[in-house]
């Protein structure tokens, strides 16, 4: 395996995919790499950086995506729209647990 110059962390729900890439790679190429892991065609995927959807034809460098950056992955819904960003974090879980506890106490 050749080591690429960088990787990005692509997150959806509780899963993080570490994807190796080069700054010259396009968003479409990144989606094609993801396709092999998630069985979703590139046109059924949307990648976002800081809530901004990324266009297929542009490169990582154009979006100033750097090593170790986090991108959000969303899937196309049956109605043709894309789902909202859904990245689970530990903190969210902790808050949820706390709320449940508070409810119980009440």
């Amino acid at each position: 395996m050749t080591i690429s110059s960088m990787y990005v962390r692509v997150k959806r729900e509780k899963i993080t995919y570490f994807i190796q890439a080069d700054p010259s790679d396009t968003i479409l190429e990144l989606k094609e790499k993801l396709q092999e892991l998630i069985d979703q065609l590139p046109e059924e995927q949307r990648l976002l950086k800081d809530d901004t959807p990324l266009e297929d034809a542009k490169s990582l460098a154009e979006y100033r995506i750097e090593n170790d950056d986090v991108l959000a992955l969303t899937y196309k819904l049956p109605d043709g729209n894309f789902e909202a960003i859904n990245i689970e974090t530990l903190r969210a879980e902790a808050e949820e647990a706390r709320t449940e506890k508070e409810v119980e106490e009440e």
Binding site: K14, I15, T16, Q20, E36, L37, L90, E93
Partner: peptide
């Protein structure tokens, strides 16, 4: 990168890498 050449690591809280 294919499914066969990757490994899935699962944390205590069930998060996958």
């Amino acid at each position: 990168m294919s499914k066969e050449s990757t490994v899935r690591l699962i944390s205590a809280e069930g998060f996958e890498f």
